[in-house]
């Protein structure tokens, strides 16, 4: 499968979605492998892509769960999703900007 990290194609992908703060606006660079998912990792990658987490897509981190900032909520193409850190770590991103969200 050609979804693995390919250093020659993606030199800038040093940041992963799970490392980002609330309010961060990001662009997807590539999708990475996640050994935690074992044999079904490829399937998770496909589902992420189907849901719109494709290279070039703009993301916004909108919130975190209670313990260990897990799961996290992101918005992609106007749709909000809850992802666990394990899934978020599959998404290589680059930083675009920061937005203050909401009033609380």
């Amino acid at each position: 499968m050609n979804l693995a990290v390919n250093p020659s194609l993606t030199p800038a992908a040093s940041l992963r979605l799970d490392q980002c703060k609330k309010g961060a606006q990001l662009r997807v660079v590539n999708l990475l492998q996640q050994p935690l998912f074992g044999a079904q990792d490829e399937r998770v990658t496909l589902r992420l892509k189907e849901l719109g987490f494709l290279p070039g897509a703009l993301l916004k981190v909108i919130g975190f769960g209670l313990m260990g900032s897990d799961p996290l909520a992101v918005q992609v193409n106007g749709t909000k999703f809850a992802l666990r850190r394990a899934e978020a770590a599959k998404i290589g991103v680059e930083f675009v900007g920061t937005e203050i969200i909401g009033s609380v």
Binding site: Q34, R47, L48, A82, R84
Partner: peptide
Amino acid sequence: RQEFPLLLELPS
């Protein structure tokens, strides 16, 4: 233990 994704849509 084996990890499965959450991937839950939060509808409008």
